[in-house]
Design a protein around this nucleic acid. Structure first.
Lengths: 230, 230
DNA sequence: CGTGCAATTGAAAGTACTCAAGCCACGTGG
DNA sequence: CCACGTGGCTTGAGTACTTTCAATTGCACG
């Protein structure tokens, strides 16, 4: 979740901005407000008009789509600093829901886009953010299209470990269902994979949502091809 | 492939551009050159330095990643007008290969980015392109994560039909292997699904790469949940 | 010390994959 | 003009992996 650290100060002006940019930026800042949500609350629903865009101030938010039959695909989890809820269209493409209690800064979408257009600097940073997200999205395509259940779960755990900058006491901030929905698996499969990894001591669990990685190498081997290789 | 029609004239100036923008645009235009490739030729390889970015002038190009074990994930196919080969990094994230004989306009990446930064108009259009691509990419995540083999293939055929604006004599411009690599399936599974759809007369094949859709509704039903619903 | 939800486990049923072989259209050379 | 490769596409049989359905266990909370 914290991969685009730069985005934390996305909306702060540079000091040496041109007056035009400064004006857009201050307009944007003026449109901002902080909203708090309880874990489980919905921020917006797929198809809603999308007048605002958001940035996580604290907590974790997930964005997902629901299929007719009730299954879900979690597009992504957003942590502190990350921008979400901005699409090229006038309506939201996903449903967003607070996973933990959280605080979210909201900005008027039109002002945000205007600020981006008016400032080469904003524009550049926003482009970077979008391209990074596209990159992430494509990594996930490889994961969903080509990796086995064990590989997906292991890759996800590596990601969490990296994001949290620890190999001990890494936290699952989301439920097994959320993990499954993100990885394109069922909750049962996620459990079984975790159990098997426990059994092989690739990971050690303190509680269901708190684990440690004794040997990073071992976990990464699972990501490579411990199973279903070729 | 032709969803972002706007991108065709991505690099044409507006006429009413500011001089600064006009300058960037002409510099960019000056850096452009057209390169022709034969079907099967490689444009660049994952990891290559990425000094250029590209736009398809004719033909079809695929961008893909290769896994250690040789399997591939085709990220996308690009048709006339589409921009590709631009990443936030200095190196290519994918390998690009000509599927058909094709012609490609190449631009210097640094000039392209400068032109984008200097022009609100360019910037806006490029943002739209990126966001549209992000959108596509996420649709593909749903496909890879949540749809059965039959659903994926059917969805892909619907996409082709839409892109080519026909329901009769729709063409597969790529091989079965490419389709499989794109959909996260094996070539055999793609074949079996196609055979089954033929059998049920959801689609009719003239040749292996040319098919018609007698009843759009029927094909769309397959996309929904003809199989593996819930 | 129940209650209720999350997580885990088991057994059976699918679904897609692997490996292996057959088919077909097409271009080449005899 | 036809036999013979070649490469792409299909089909078959068996297998491995995931899901489905059904319980069971674990845990936080009142």
């Amino acid at each position: 979740m914290a991969r685009t650290a730069q985005s934390v100060e996305f909306f702060q002006s540079d000091g040496d901005s041109l007056s035009d940019e400064a004006k857009e930026a201050s307009l944007l800042a003026a449109s901002a407000s902080i909203i708090r949500y309880r874990a489980g609350e919905t921020l917006y629903v797929e198809g809603d008009r999308a007048p605002m865009c958001y940035q996580v101030a604290s907590g974790v938010v997930k964005e997902y789509n629901t299929l007719e039959d009730g299954r879900r695909q979690v597009a992504d989890f957003y942590g502190v600093g990350e921008i979400f809820g901005i699409s090229e269209l006038d309506w939201q493409l996903h449903t967003a829901e607070a996973i933990t209690d959280c605080a979210v800064r909201s900005y008027r979408r039109d002002l945000f886009l205007k600020a981006v257009a008016s400032s080469p600097d904003f524009s550049h940073r926003f482009l970077d953010t979008l391209m990074a997200r596209l990159h992430r999205s494509r990594e996930r395509m490889i994961m969903l299209g080509r990796m086995s259940a064990a590989q997906r779960v292991a890759a996800f755990m590596v990601r969490l470990s990296n994001e949290q900058n620890v190999t001990r006491n890494v936290r699952f901030l989301m439920s097994r269902q959320d993990i499954a929905d993100h990885l394109g698996l069922t909750i049962e499969t996620v459990c079984r994979v975790l159990t098997e990894m426990k059994r092989q001591r690739v990971v050690v669990f303190d509680t269901a949502r708190l684990f440690s990685i004794p040997d990073t190498r071992m976990l990464e081997d699972v990501v490579q091809g411990g199973k279903k290789a070729r």
